[in-house]
């Protein structure tokens, strides 16, 4: 199953790049992701208004496709008269920050545990298996709710909670991938030649787990973003008035039967971001032929 790309002809990187560009849904996913990232980074330059500026006399203005919309607020305003477009643009920051930071943290934890278990086996493996089992048996959402209720909700807490909880798939995949690599001839050869464990891990194992790591990372990033949105939706995520898509959706519920655009606009943004991440992940899986079936 562990098919090494043979290093003949053009460099493997080139081949991969060419295959990636040829993969249409991957290209689409990456482009959308890129646009969202640029939007997040340059939010202060793009956003037409201050996302925190309220105007109680200009509440709930409809977006441009309604007759009574106002050109000043293309996507209308929210329940306290803040510009919806500006909040949407700034919201990309929150979602991406949560996705990236939570995944960095969980990826680190999961990779260390998974690689250690797969490489050393034996007791280390048993302990990691036990940790993974324990983590999986804790109902994630309920625990996250309880932790946030306990420590108060803020961006930092949400990132920490998600980061400390979403490492299980990293560990599972890294463990099995490392196991496969460890039994490869070149690893055995390196060990026979007297290379230290650290050196083998660093030189032989890590470079070869990169691709499945990336695939898991995309899945978990999407996961983290959905979880933040769900937590915020229930009022246990980030705190208002921070512009978060989950929080915008939560606020929009009060008006969803009559001003459904309040719900559809951030909903579509969230959908587009998650779709882009998933397409990217699927593309990576196809292109690299690695990662297998992942949750």
């Amino acid at each position: 199953m562990a098919d090494q790309t043979p290093a003949v002809g053009p460099s493997p990187g080139r081949i991969a790049l060419r295959r990636m560009l040829a993969h249409r849904s991957f290209a689409l996913g990456v482009s959308v992701l890129l646009v969202m990232t640029l939007m997040a980074i340059f939010a202060p330059l793009i956003a037409p208004h201050d996302p925190y500026a309220t105007d109680l006399t200009q509440r709930l203005l409809p977006p441009f496709w309604h007759d009574d919309s106002v050109p000043e607020h293309i996507l209308g305003t929210d329940k306290v008269g803040r510009d919806y477009l500006s909040r949407l643009i700034y919201g990309a920051r929150v979602s991406l920050a949560i996705g990236v930071l939570a995944v960095l943290l969980s990826g680190l934890i999961g990779t260390v545990l998974g690689v250690a278990a797969g490489y050393f086996g034996g007791k280390v493996d048993a302990v990691v298996t036990y940790l993974i089992g324990t983590r999986l048996s804790l109902p994630l959402f309920l625990v996250a709710l309880a932790v946030v209720a306990m420590f108060g909700s803020s961006l930092t807490i949400v990132i920490l909670v998600l980061g400390l909880f979403l490492w299980d798939q990293f560990a599972v995949v890294m463990r099995s991938v490392t196991k496969q690599i460890r039994s490869q001839d070149y690893v055995r050869a390196a060990r026979a030649a007297g290379a230290s464990h650290m050196r083998i891990l660093w030189r032989e194992i890590l470079p070869n787990v990169r691709e499945p790591l990336l695939v898991v990372a995309t899945v978990e990033m999407a996961n983290a973003i959905i979880l933040e949105a769900s937590l915020s939706f229930l009022g246990f995520g980030v705190q208002a008035p921070l512009p978060s898509w989950g929080l915008m959706l939560s606020d929009a519920r009060e008006f969803m039967f009559f001003d459904p655009w309040l719900l559809t606009i951030p909903g579509c943004a969230l959908f587009a971001l998650l779709l882009a991440i998933n397409l990217t992940g699927d593309g990576l899986r196809d292109v690299t032929g690695r990662g297998g079936v992942l949750r």
Binding site: P62, H66, F257, F258, D259, P260, W261, L263, T264, I265
Partner: peptide, 11 residues
């Protein structure tokens, strides 16, 4: 239409 956000009229 309502789902797509056409507004209260559809409802």
């Amino acid at each position: 239409k309502a789902v797509l956000g056409a507004g209260a009229l559809a409802l």
